Simulated assay, not measured.
Amino acid sequence: MTHPMHPDQVATPPQLVRRLVDEQFPHWADRPLTRIRHAGTDHDVHRLGDDLVVRLPVVAWATDQAELERRWLPVLAPHLPLAVPTHRATGRPDHGYPFTWSVWDWLPGRSVDGRLDDAAADALAGFRDALHAVPTDVAPPRRPHSRGGPLAELDDEVQPAIRRVGDLVDAPRTLALWAEAVQAPRWTDDVWLHGDLLPGNVLADEDRLSAVIDWGCLTTGDPAADLVAGWHLFDGPQRRRFLGDADDAAAARARGWVISQAVIALPYYRDTNPGIVAQSLRALAAVLS
Results as ranks from 00 to 15, higher is better:
residue 2 T to W: 11
residue 2 T to M: 15
residue 2 T to S: 15
residue 3 H to G: 14
residue 6 H to Q: 07
residue 8 D to F: 10
residue 11 A to Y: 08
residue 12 T to G: 04
residue 14 P to C: 10
residue 16 L to A: 06
residue 17 V to G: 01
residue 17 V to W: 00
residue 22 D to L: 13
residue 23 E to A: 14
residue 27 H to Y: 12
residue 28 W to Y: 11
residue 28 W to L: 13
residue 30 D to K: 08
residue 32 P to Q: 12
residue 37 R to P: 05
residue 38 H to G: 15
residue 40 G to L: 05
residue 42 D to K: 05
residue 47 R to N: 09
residue 48 L to D: 01
residue 51 D to K: 06
residue 52 L to M: 11
residue 53 V to F: 09
residue 54 V to L: 10
residue 58 V to Y: 00
residue 65 Q to D: 14
residue 67 E to K: 10
residue 68 L to S: 10
residue 70 R to W: 11
residue 70 R to K: 15
residue 71 R to S: 15
residue 74 P to A: 12
residue 74 P to Q: 11
residue 77 A to M: 09
residue 78 P to H: 14
residue 80 L to W: 06
residue 83 A to W: 03
residue 85 P to R: 05
residue 91 G to F: 00
residue 91 G to C: 07
residue 91 G to A: 09
residue 94 D to P: 03
residue 100 T to W: 05
residue 104 W to Y: 12
residue 106 W to G: 03
residue 107 L to A: 07
residue 109 G to R: 08
residue 112 V to N: 01
residue 119 A to K: 12
residue 125 A to G: 13
residue 126 G to S: 08
residue 126 G to T: 07
residue 130 A to L: 09
residue 133 A to T: 11
residue 134 V to T: 07
residue 135 P to H: 10
residue 140 P to D: 10
residue 140 P to A: 13
residue 143 R to Q: 14
residue 144 P to E: 12
residue 150 P to D: 11
residue 150 P to T: 10
residue 155 D to M: 05
residue 156 D to S: 12
residue 157 E to S: 15
residue 161 A to T: 02
residue 162 I to F: 04
residue 164 R to Q: 14
residue 169 V to M: 05
residue 170 D to M: 06
residue 170 D to K: 09
residue 170 D to W: 05
residue 171 A to R: 07
residue 172 P to H: 07
residue 175 L to W: 04
residue 175 L to N: 03
residue 181 A to Q: 03
residue 183 Q to G: 15
residue 185 P to R: 09
residue 187 W to Y: 13
residue 187 W to F: 14
residue 191 V to D: 00
residue 191 V to K: 03
residue 192 W to E: 03
residue 195 G to N: 02
residue 197 L to N: 02
residue 197 L to W: 01
residue 199 P to D: 08
residue 202 V to D: 01
residue 204 A to E: 10
residue 207 D to H: 14
residue 210 S to F: 06
residue 211 A to K: 04
residue 215 W to K: 02
residue 219 T to F: 00
residue 220 T to M: 04
residue 222 D to E: 08
residue 226 D to M: 01
residue 228 V to D: 00
residue 229 A to D: 02
residue 229 A to T: 02
residue 230 G to V: 04
residue 230 G to M: 02
residue 232 H to G: 02
residue 235 D to W: 03
residue 235 D to Y: 08
residue 236 G to S: 13
residue 237 P to R: 10
residue 238 Q to P: 01
residue 238 Q to C: 13
residue 240 R to Q: 13
residue 247 D to P: 04
residue 250 A to Y: 02
residue 250 A to N: 00
residue 250 A to D: 03
residue 254 A to L: 07
residue 260 S to V: 05
residue 269 Y to T: 00
residue 269 Y to K: 00
residue 269 Y to M: 01
residue 270 R to V: 05
residue 271 D to W: 15
residue 275 G to E: 05
residue 276 I to S: 00
residue 276 I to E: 00
residue 278 A to C: 09
residue 280 S to G: 11
residue 281 L to M: 11
residue 281 L to N: 02
residue 284 L to A: 08
residue 286 A to M: 13
